[in-house]
């Protein structure tokens, strides 16, 4: 496993790529991409078994980004891992690009499209059940947003994952506290989160979603859990790493201007 310092550096590189590609695209979602950057960096560079040169390797661990609007992060991670050439990043959201505004099958490394919120956890359960039938020991990871879990389907899936004892399923909640219309607790409170997920039969782990050591430890702990799925409730900061984006709801779904991008990249250098 790469040392924590190296993963921190990697996460910073990925944040820089997010800023650059969004500035070029002129639209997209920086806030949630930046808040879950440390989590996804750990997953792809320290936790998951996968082969960028063979994206469909049957034994690979699966990742489903249920909060599809944060795909700039996913694209940055995939290109860093070697799934496709970096130059593709500068085509984000353009006609004919392999990098759509929300994730889909055009992108090497993306198994299932997302974008309409609340559906990824169900998809992840399907991957778990298929692996069980095929006797493949892969694990399935699913990134959820805190606004996203207001969708009813998430709770249908939460029930089903526990019912089918999906212990190789690990969801990660990017708990940055903001959604488009404002603070999650003001728009539609989702607390008490730990109690809710536990009541639905899940093992819960609460961490600081920007502390690499805590993230790695949480994934290790999740691997050891038997007979129930795990959710890592990761407290994060929306827009993390760029001072003027942090906790600013406007940057949920607005790309930085050229000026803002320049400033952001200076902070991330």
């Amino acid at each position: 496993m790469p040392p924590v310092k190296e993963l921190e550096k990697k996460a910073k590189r990925i944040r820089r790529l997010i800023i650059k590609m969004l500035e070029k695209a002129g639209s997209g979602h920086p806030g949630g991409s930046l808040s879950s950057a440390d989590i996804l960096t750990c997953l792809y560079f320290a936790v998951m078994r996968h082969k960028p040169e063979n994206p469909r390797w049957p034994q690979r661990d699966r990742f489903q980004m249920s909060k599809g609007h944060c795909c700039p992060l996913w694209y940055a991670v995939l290109t860093e891992a070697g799934y496709f050439p970096k130059k593709e990043l500068w085509t984000l959201r353009n006609l004919g690009s392999i990098l759509q505004g929300h994730p889909d099958w055009r992108t090497p490394g993306v198994d299932v499209a997302s974008g309409s919120l609340g559906q990824g956890l169900s998809v992840a359960i399907g991957m778990v059940l298929a692996g069980r039938l095929d006797k493949l020991p892969y694990r399935v990871y699913c990134l959820l947003g805190d606004g996203e879990i207001q969708e009813g389907q998430i709770w249908e899936a939460a029930m089903a994952a526990a019912h089918y004892r999906c212990d190789n399923l690990c969801a990660i909640l990017d708990y940055n506290g903001y959604q488009i219309d404002g603070r999650v607790k003001d728009i539609m409170n989702v607390e008490p989160l730990r109690d809710k997920w536990q009541a639905f039969g899940w093992h819960t782990i609460n961490i600081d979603g920007h502390d690499i050591a805590q993230i790695l430890a949480a994934f290790e702990q999740a691997k050891a859990v038997k007979d129930k799925p795990t959710i890592i409730i990761a407290k994060t900061i929306k827009g993390k790493g760029v001072s003027f984006m942090e906790n600013v709801v406007d940057f949920h779904g607005r790309a930085p201007t050229q000026e803002e991008a320049k400033k952001a990249l200076e902070e991330l250098s």
């Binding site: 299932v112 169900s122 998809v123 991957m127 298929a130």
Partner: peptide, 16 residues
């Protein structure tokens, strides 16, 4: 829970 069922079906299909 039909919505979840359709999503699970997609996940199963993604694995063949």
């Amino acid at each position: 829970a039909e919505q979840n069922m359709m999503g699970v079906a997609a996940g199963l299909a993604s694995c063949g």
